[in-house]
Design a protein around this nucleic acid. Structure first.
Length: 963
RNA sequence: GCGAGGGUGGCCGAGCCUGGCCAAAGGCGGCGGGCUUAAGACCCGCUCCUGUAGGGGUCCAUGGGUUCGAAUCCCAUCCCUCGCACCA
């Protein structure tokens, strides 16, 4: 039978489905293992990147199952939030790109498109036709009874329980939060709704409250510490400015700024509108220094950005320095046009506020001079400004005038300084984007402040629990542990609700929806009960229901500080409690490494808070990113490979094997068609060989006729079993599959070359080896392994126990012998190659007895022997003493050699009959080199040594003569 | 800038923690040979330089250092990737 994965795999899929092979229930006889992966978000189809994400946990699941565990690997569907809603919108609007993704990338048939026009219709389509199909074909060992979507009513009740709990525990907080707000649609919008500025970030500007006669001229800056260096202000003379009552105070800002303040939760009442020119010449008072500075005109001021009133710090901002230089040059014009005293302009001097190495008193002047910037139009200027800002931020120290803040480096002091002056009423705050943001509707998007509920991830008590959860976590790879700690320190409050989208409503305010990252923190617990809650009426799944389920009716398993006392526990809740108890905690969660910054850390936070310590996550394995032919995948560009197509072309085993073997789970991998094709060829080769081995007719007494080379191969097999198991324990799928497959293939290649594989002993050996390897490979290529194993033994590989190394079959002696033969073979080959001669006779001379005596002494002295020590002992022997220098040289050489060997190897070598090993290999060498092979002992009676080479022999490095 | 991870032979990629067995695994590609009517598959060899006896030289981003000995440890520099949030 030729290798036909299509047919073969279908057969096993059917069998798994019919027998419910991966459906699991609690079993007190067996240990539970619970493996999860983030539920897919079906806002589009599945591509090969997803395939790997789900195959890694599958390998682990299959491995643990063979180790005897009762393994649950469930899946569900995440539909919360706006991406699906947005995708449907774009489809309904007939957007070309969206249609192309659906039709061309994911092959949605034309007549199915209509059913995608509702969010759940859209999700269902991809769940049923795409994800589930792909997962089944990949051979994922999922318990399908446990699936659900995050739109299910019962799941919502579970989320509701969680949020009521968190609120009660004081971990939710209401507050203002910056959001993207479309000024045209007059509502908050998401990143997906944006036409431009998707990468824009919120920036927090400090407003310096310059004043004049009770009127505030707020100047926005990102460098509040430069307040003492302000020499003047700028406004755009043609810009539209207003005088307005802001939160009861009179402020002067640009008209655009006034609108923003209104969005940012300030009361704004516009009193008067006028051009910026009207402000020129006014003098405003610095709230920190009390100095008065003039307002000057400048066309580079953007009234749409921040407040439209800009403060100038020429000593430290190259931009401002150049602008000031130009203003002074134009002083007379300014006087003529705006009536500002020209001398007053010319008198403005930069005021330094900090010291920094490698710059003079006025850093901006130096930076401008060094870069040769001539005017404000110079494109260099921007870069010069950036550089100086950077240098000053990390290297600048505040001058004396800063009092308690003096001498401190900006990076350390800025926030404290800012805070100090905010409290003193000198500074204020506003938010602004880093770039222009436009909504898909064409409207301008601004930062608005909105009332929102937050998860208080910066709560010290909660943080501490989260850190403890990290302490006891098995983080794979280990170097991710630090990233979790880091994320915990860095997280602030997390806004956990949205204005719209799918999902669970905030229990106490149904205007809001709990957002996707916040509704997916502890849902793994829901898998344990999902198949059994169908019959429970939704309304009965209340607070008490879940309290009783997760915490016990008396709250016996409740976390600290929770008071649970369920009067009349729901009987189903009590039953399900056993399910939960059996399966929880989650043993391994596999997830993309970019989720450490949010989801995975949230997952730890919420478990740490809501469950007792025994139910905290046990392990997290993070996964790398996928590339396609060296470039990142993109469904919108059609640069993807669909699992379906890949499986059609190569078979699921090949797809799995490639994805798991090309890199470790946490490393990035690259799907290259050429390499996948090669993998497929290799598996086919394996299949063909295995079929031959399966077909062997092995006599019953074959095992009694094993030769040393068979013993050697069986010994190697034990190493492979050990290495593969150890690698899988560390979730190193690449190492494990390399060991079980490629590394052992190499041994087999040598074995086939070395010996006659038609011997009964060889056949027995090869079948034994195949049986073990099929088990080792079963987690990776389950279809092929099950099929071949069943043909060989009558049982699928996955139903047999994971192989244990058999000490009976370990043979250090055979390993050492075989390596000597390999070395000799290689030496002869080298000589043949270098000399370019084809020998008729190969003579091999094993070292003389006295040399072996020396070796014994060296071996006895151990790995860290030194020459003098060994010489001392060797010289006790009269026979050796007579040989003088020759012994000395040999000792040195052998000590070098011995240092590279283990004690065990040395002991094995000492006990070895070297000449005998070569004699047994003579037939093999004769075949290999098509020559007569003569083996002698250097000091043997019959030694024939025409070229006088025998003397070169060293123990375990025989002399060779070719003729 | 901050945080994390990297830079190895034509390419991919092991090795680095625990220094010596490292000219550095394996795969891919390339070259040569075998098998074959032939192609593919398969098998063998070569694939840094050099050498007609198993050897020698140079090499693991760059420059220093530690050490008897460094791809591996330390320092500095250069370069690359990812993240820096409210997007799942």
């Amino acid at each position: 039978m030729d290798y036909d994965p299509g047919e073969l795999e279908q057969k096993w899929r059917d069998r798994w489905a019919q027998t419910g092979r991966y459906e699991v229930d609690p079993d007190d006889e067996r240990e539970s293992t619970f493996v999860t992966v983030p539920y897919p978000y079906p806002s589009g189809g599945m591509h090969i990147g997803h395939a790997r994400t789900y195959t890694v946990p599958d390998v682990w699941a299959r491995y643990r199952r063979m180790c005897g565990d009762n393994v649950m690997f469930p899946i569900a569907w995440h539909v919360t939030g706006t991406p699906i809603v947005g995708a449907v919108e774009r489809l309904k609007n007939g957007e070309e790109q969206q249609l192309s993704v659906l039709r061309d990338t994911y092959n949605v048939p034309e007549d199915e498109l209509e059913q995608l026009e509702t969010p759940m219709g859209f999700a269902r389509y991809f769940i049923e036709n795409d994800y589930k199909e792909g997962m089944r074909r990949l051979g994922l060992s999922i318990d399908w009874r446990r699936e659900f979507t995050t739109e299910d009513d019962r799941y919502s009740k579970f989320v509701t329980w969680q949020y009521e709990n968190l609120r009660e525990r004081g971990l939710l907080e209401k507050g203002l939060h910056p959001v993207n707000y479309c000024t045209n649609e007059e509502q908050p919008v998401t990143t997906h709704d944006l036409l431009e500025g998707e990468d824009a970030e919120f920036q927090e500007f400090t407003l310096i409250r310059f004043e004049r006669e009770g009127t505030v001229f707020p100047m926005a800056t990102l460098r509040p510490e430069t307040v003492r260096g302000v020499t003047n202000a700028y406004v755009h003379p043609d810009g539209e400015y207003v005088r307005a009552l802001v939160d009861g105070e009179e402020w002067v800002v640009s008209a655009a700024a006034a609108a923003k303040f209104e969005l940012q939760d300030r009361e704004v009442e516009i009193a008067e509108t006028f051009p910026g020119a009207d402000l020129v010449g006014e003098r405003v008072e610095n709230p920190v220094t009390g100095d008065e500075v003039p307002v000057l005109p400048a066309t580079f001021v953007d009234p749409d950005n921040a407040t439209g009133v800009v403060m100038s710090v020429p000593a430290h901002s190259p931009d401002d320095y150049v602008a000031l230089r130009e203003a002074r040059d134009r002083a007379d014009e300014i006087e003529a046009e705006y009536g500002v005293d020209a001398d007053a302009v010319r008198d403005i001097e930069p005021v330094p506020i900090l010291e920094i190495d490698d710059y003079g008193e006025i850093p901006a002047r130096d930076a401008v001079a060094a870069a040769g910037v001539a005017s404000s139009d110079d494109p260099e200027l921007h870069a010069v400004t950036e550089d100086l800002y950077q240098d000053e931020f990390h290297g600048g120290r505040l001058l004396e005038a800063y009092g308690e803040f003096a001498g401190e480096v900006i990076v350390d002091v800025r926030e404290r300084f800012r805070q100090h002056h905010v409290e003193a009423g000198h500074f204020d705050t506003m938010h602004e984007f880093t770039e222009e943001v436009i909504c898909r509707c064409g409207g301008d998007v601004e930062v608005a402040q909105q009332e929102t509920w937050f998860l208080r991830y910066n709560d010290e008590g909660w943080r501490e629990k989260a850190r403890e959860a990290v302490d006891q976590l098995d983080a794979v790879p280990e170097n991710t542990r630090e990233q979790y700690y880091d994320t915990i320190d860095w997280l602030e409050e997390w806004p956990c609700i949205r204005n719209y989208g799918l999902g669970t409503r905030l229990p106490w305010d149904d205007e809001f929806v709990i957002e996707p990252l916040s509704d997916s923190t502890i849902y793994m617990a829901y898998y344990t009960i999902a198949p059994y809650v169908e019959d429970v009426p939704v309304e009965e799944m209340d607070r008490d229901f879940f309290d009783a389920l997760f915490y016990g009716p008396e709250g016996e398993d409740a976390p600290e500080g929770a008071e649970v006392d369920v009067e009349d526990p729901h009987p189903t809740a009590l039953e399900l409690r056993e399910e939960f108890d059996y399966w929880y905690p989650v043993d391994v969660r596999c997830s993309a490494n970019d989720l450490i910054r949010n989801h995975l850390t949230f997952y730890l936070y919420h478990h740490a808070e809501l469950f007792e310590r025994e139910n905290w996550p046990q392990g997290i394995t993070v996964m790398g990113m996928g590339l396609l032919e060296g470039e990142s995948m993109s469904s919108s560009k059609g640069h993807v490979v669909l699992p379906d197509e890949a499986i059609d072309k190569y078979g699921a085993d090949t797809v799995r094997f490639f994805l798991l073997n090309s890199s470790e789970p946490w490393q990035d991998y690259d799907w290259r068609a050429e390499d996948v094709g090669a993998t497929r060829d290799q598996l086919e080769r394996f299949w063909n060989r295995a079929r031959e081995v399966v077909a062997y007719d092995v006599p019953d007494d074959a095992e009694e006729h094993l030769q040393p080379v068979d013993r050697w191969l069986l010994s190697e097999l034990q190493d492979t079993v050990r290495e593969t198991g150890q690698a899988l324990e560390r979730v190193e799928t690449r190492t494990a599959s390399q060991e079980a497959f490629y590394r052992f293939e190499e041994q087999l290649r040598w074995y086939r070359r070395r010996t006659d594989a038609d011997r009964p002993g060889a056949k027995w050996t090869l079948q034994t080896v195949l049986r073990t390897r099929l088990r080792l490979l079963a987690p990776f290529v389950p279809y092929m392994a099950d099929e071949l194993h069943e043909e060989l033994t009558g049982e699928p590989a996955e139903d047999t126990p994971w192989p244990e190394p058999d000490p009976e079959l370990d043979s250090p002696r055979r390993a050492v012998e075989e390596s000597l033969i390999r070395d000799l073979h290689e030496d002869v080959r080298d000589i043949v190659e270098v000399t370019g001669e084809d020998p008729d006779v190969v003579r091999v001379y094993a070292a003389a007895d006295w040399k072996h005596h020396v070796f014994e002494e060296v071996a006895e002295a151990g790995a860290d022997a030194n020459v003098g020590q060994v010489m001392g002992r060797v010289m006790q022997d009269e026979d050796l003493r007579e040989r003088g220098d020759a012994v000395n040289d040999l000792v040195q050489e052998l000590i070098e050699d011995a240092r590279d060997r283990t004690e065990e190897e040395l002991a094995t070598l000492v006990a070895l009959d070297e000449t005998g090993v070569y004699e047994r290999a003579a037939g093999f060498l004769a075949r290999e080199f098509d020559a007569d092979v003569e083996v002698y002992a250097e000091d043997g009676a019959d030694v024939h040594d025409p070229a006088d080479r025998a003397g070169q022999a060293v123990p375990f490095r025989p002399a060779v003569h070719l003729e």
